[in-house]
Design a protein around this nucleic acid. Structure first.
Length: 680
DNA sequence: GGGATAACTCTAG
DNA sequence: TTCCACTAGAGTTATCCC
C-alpha cells in the first residue's frame, strides 16, 4: 500500500501489489499459489471498506515511522557508526559466549489441526477444500483450500471469492481440546515438562530421552510423529534444533507430515540462519519486516548482524539484542518452571452501533462472560481495561486500577460502564474487557492490595533485573502449560492516590438495559489456555489515569459534544470547537498536502487526521502560551476520580501533546518493536 | 531518578 | 446475502508522584 491513496487504475494498473496484507508471507501448503491473484482478490474485496481505510491510515503512520528512521540514519556520523559498531561487536561477543548447544529441542506442530480434526469427524470432507470458521473469519484451512490462497485469519467472504467451492465448518473447541489432550499424552512420554504453545503446538526438550535411549533426535521425532498418528489419526510436523526459536523454524520446513533436524553445531546453525528470511522468525511480523527491509535493507537473518551498528543505534537495548541474537541463531534453551497467567479478557464484535442502550447491553453481556471465566479460574483482579473498536476500526483502550480486587459481573460492569460513559457518544463495532493484576490468593478470596506479602517483599529487591532475566529465558507465547512464576513483578512502597471503591457511580443512575436477553449474536467464547491463578506482588494502591492521550479525543468530543466537555473539563467554549479556525491563522497545508509547520504529509482525503494534526499544532501553541505565563502546571493534582480525565484542561492538553501517537512528526519511531517470542 | 500506571502497538495461533 | 475474530503476552513511551 505504498501509494494507494489518490492513485487510479490508470496511474497504477496493479494497485493490489502494494496492498500489504498478512497473507503475503509464505505459509505451508501455499507454494504453488498464484500470489498475484490472491493479492488482487483481497484488494478488490477490501477496497473502499472501513477496514481498508483504516489499513491505509495505519500504513501511512508506518511510512512516517520509516521516514523518521531514514532521517535518523542519515544523521549518524562516521564517528557514531564506529561507536555503535563497537557496541554491536561487544553484544555479539557476549551473546556468543552464552550460546548453548547442549540441549535438543523439538517443536511439534499439528498439520492444519482444526481442519484435520473436522475431517476425522466427517470423512466426506476429505479431499475437498474446507475451512474452519465463518464468513467473518477463518480459523484454519485444509491444504486443498490453501492451494487457492485460503488461509487462517482470512475473512470468510474473501476466502469464498478465492475458492467458491469452499466448505465452511463451524469451530468446535470441544473436539479440538479432546484431540489436543490425546496428543499431549504422547508428548508427555518424551518430555513430561513439555511446553504447550497452543492446542496444536508444543516444545519438548528431548535431550534426556535421546541420551537415555541412545538414539538420534531424528529417530525420536519419527517415533513421536508416528505415535501421535496412531493415537489420534492426525499428522504432525516436527523441527529439531538446539533452541526453541530454531526448532520452530525447522518444523515448518517439511510441513505437512514431515520433519527437519538442524544439527547442534555452531557452523550448521550459522549457515542455516544466514539465508533465512527474517519473516520466518517468530516475533518478526509484517510491520517489523517492513521496517527492517525499507530502512536498513535487511531481508535475511545474516543481514541483521551486518547492520548491527545501525540496529544498536536506532533501537532499544532489548530490541537490538533480539535482532543480533536472531542473526546468531540463538534462542531459548532453558525450561521455565511455572508460569502464571497475567490477564483474562473477553471481547465481542457486533454490528456497529452508537445506540447507548445497546452498547451498555453489550458491555453487560461481556462483563457477564468475563466474570464467569474469572470465577471458573478463581481469579480476582484490580485493573480493568476497556477496549473499543470504533465503526472505522480505530482501537481505543481505557483502563482503571481499583483499590479492591474484583471478579463479579456487577463490579466489572460498574467500573466498565464508567469507562465507557466517558467515551460516549461513539459508534462501536467491538467492546472488550480485560482484567489484570490478579491477587495472590489462589483460593479466590480477594486480598488487600495495600498489604505487602512476604513473597513480594523478598522478591521486590531486584525486580527489574529478574524481569529482564526472565525475558531472556522464556518464550512468551508458551502460555498454557508451564506458566512462569512472575511473583517478582515489581512493587514499591510508594503511596499513590487510589480510587475509592465507593466512587460516585453514574452507572447506577444510568438506564442500563436488562441483561437478561441472552440472545446476543456473539460467537463461542473460546479459551485454550490452561489457566493458573497468578499471584500479584504489586502492593501499591492504584491511581487513575483517565486523561485522554489520544489527540483525536479532544477534537472529537469537543466537536461532538462540546456541552459535556465544557461542563466537565471547564474548557473555554471555543477552545476545541473552533480550533481549526484558530489554527488557520498560523498554519496551512502547502500544496494542499504538506503541513506548513512541520512538513508532515497528509493527503486531503485524510480529513480526520488532518483535523487532528491542525489541532495538535493549536494545542502546542496554547501550551507554549501557557508555559510562558507559568501557571497551572505546578498546581497539585486533585484526588483522582473518574472525572479526572476532564478535570483539568491544562493538564489534559499537556498530556495530549506528549502522547499523541497519531500525530505524524511526533510519533516515537521505535515504539512498536515487540519481541513477544524473542527467546524461543 | 525510578516505580506505577495508562495507552498503544505488534505478534501469534 | 453475508463484508476482516478472539485471547494473551510483551515492549515502548508518556505521565504522575515520591
Amino acid at each position: 500500500m505504498e501509494k494507494i491513496e489518490g492513485s487510479s487504475s490508470i496511474e497504477n494498473p496493479r494497485p493490489w501489489q502494494s496492498y500489504h496484507t498478512v497473507y503475503t508471507n509464505a505459509k505451508a501448503g501455499m507454494d504453488g499459489v498464484d500470489k498475484e491473484k490472491v493479492q488482487r482478490v483481497v484488494y478488490e474485496m477490501s477496497k473502499g471498506s472501513k477496514y481498508f481505510e483504516n489499513e491505509e491510515r495505519k500504513e501511512v503512520f508506518i511510512r512516517q515511522k520509516i521516514e523518521h528512521m531514514h532521517v535518523r540514519c542519515a544523521k549518524l556520523t562516521s564517528a557514531d557508526l564506529s561507536h555503535y559498531q563497537k557496541v554491536a561487536d561487544k553484544r555479539v561477543s557476549e551473546l556468543e559466549v552464552r550460546r548453548d548447544l547442549s540441549r535438543i529441542w523439538l517443536h511439534v506442530d499439528m498439520d492444519a489441526f482444526y481442519a484435520a480434526v473436522e475431517t476425522l469427524s466427517d470423512p466426506s470432507l476429505k479431499g475437498k477444500p474446507m475451512a474452519v470458521g465463518g464468513m467473518s473469519m477463518i480459523s484454519t484451512a485444509n491444504y486443498e483450500a490453501r492451494k487457492f490462497g485460503v488461509r487462517a485469519a482470512m475473512p470468510g467472504f474473501i476466502a469464498c471469492k478465492l475458492c467458491p467451492e469452499l466448505i465452511f465448518v463451524p469451530t468446535d473447541f470441544k473436539k479440538y481440546n479432546y484431540y489436543s489432550d490425546l496428543t499431549r499424552k504422547v508428548l508427555c512420554d518424551y518430555d513430561p515438562n513439555f511446553m504447550a504453545a497452543s492446542l496444536d503446538e508444543a516444545y519438548l526438550d528431548i535431550t534426556e530421552v535421546c541420551r537415555e535411549r541412545g538414539i538420534t533426535s531424528a529417530e525420536i521425532a519419527e517415533e513421536l510423529r508416528s505415535r501421535v498418528y496412531e493415537e489420534t489419526g492426525l499428522t504432525c510436523s516436527a523441527g529439531v534444533a538446539a533452541n526453541r526459536l530454531l526448532a520452530k523454524v525447522c518444523s515448518d520446513i517439511n510441513k505437512p507430515n514431515g520433519q527437519f533436524v538442524l544439527p547442534n553445531e555452531r557452523m550448521a546453525v550459522i549457515t542455516f540462519v544466514s539465508s533465512l528470511p527474517i519473516r520466518k522468525i517468530g516475533g518478526i511480523g509484517k510491520v517489523t519486516e517492513h521496517i527492517l527491509r525499507d530502512v536498513f535493507g535487511i531481508n535475511t537473518c545474516e543481514e541483521l548482524l551486518q547492520k548491527g551498528s545501525f540496529l544498536c543505534a536506532l533501537f532499544s537495548h532489548s530490541t537490538a539484542e533480539f535482532f543480533l541474537s536472531v542473526g546468531l541463531g540463538l534462542g531459548g534453551t532453558e525450561t521455565p518452571q511455572v508460569r502464571f497467567r497475567k490477564s483474562i479478557s473477553s471481547e465481542r464484535t457486533f454490528s456497529a452501533t452508537e445506540n447507548k442502550a445497546l452498547l451498555y447491553q453489550k458491555l453487560a453481556e461481556i462483563a457477564e462472560m468475563l466474570s464467569a471465566d474469572m470465577q471458573k479460574e478463581g481469579l480476582h483482579g484490580r485493573t480493568l481495561t476497556l477496549k473499543l473498536k470504533t465503526a472505522s476500526f480505530e482501537i481505543r483502550t481505557r483502563a482503571v486500577t481499583l483499590q479492591k480486587y474484583i471478579c463479579s459481573s456487577e463490579d466489572i460492569l460498574k467500573h466498565a460502564s464508567l469507562l465507557l460513559k466517558a467515551e460516549l457518544p461513539v459508534s462501536l463495532r467491538l467492546i472488550g474487557l480485560r482484567v489484570s493484576q490478579f491477587n495472590e490468593d489462589k483460593a479466590g478470596a480477594p486480598s488487600d492490595p495495600t498489604q505487602r506479602t512476604l513473597t513480594s517483599f523478598i522478591m521486590s529487591g531486584d525486580a527489574s533485573r529478574k524481569n529482564a532475566a526472565d525475558r531472556s529465558s522464556l518464550g512468551s507465547d508458551i502460555r498454557d502449560h508451564h506458566f512462569m512464576d512472575d511473583q517478582e513483578t515489581s512493587c514499591s512502597l510508594g503511596i499513590h492516590e487510589t480510587i475509592p471503591d465507593e466512587v460516585s457511580d453514574p452507572f447506577e443512575n444510568n438506564c442500563v438495559p436488562n441483561v437478561d436477553d441472552k440472545n446476543h449474536t456473539f460467537g463461542d467464547n473460546v479459551g485454550e489456555v490452561e489457566k493458573i491463578p497468578q499471584p500479584s506482588s504489586s502492593e501499591t494502591a492504584g491511581k487513575v489515569h483517565l486523561v485522554e492521550t489520544d489527540s483525536s479525543f479532544l477534537l472529537q468530543h469537543a466537536g461532538n459534544n462540546h456541552d459535556r466537555v465544557e461542563e466537565e473539563a471547564n474548557i473555554p467554549n471555543n477552545e476545541g470547537v473552533s480550533s481549526s479556525n484558530q489554527t488557520d491563522q498560523f498554519f496551512c497545508w502547502v500544496d494542499n498536502y504538506k503541513c506548513s509547520l512541520c512538513g508532515t504529509e497528509l493527503p486531503p482525503t485524510f480529513v480526520e487526521e488532518r483535523q487532528e494534526h491542525s489541532d495538535f499544532h493549536l494545542a502546542e501553541r496554547l501550551q507554549e502560551e501557557e508555559s510562558g505565563s507559568n501557571s497551572r502546571f505546578h498546581t497539585p493534582r486533585q484526588r483522582p476520580v473518574y472525572k479526572d480525565r476532564t478535570a483539568s484542561a491544562s493538564h489534559k492538553k499537556r498530556k495530549k501533546l506528549k502522547s499523541s501517537r497519531k500525530e505524524g512528526t511526533h510519533i516515537p519511531i521505535d515504539t512498536f518493536f515487540v519481541k513477544s517470542n524473542q527467546n524461543l
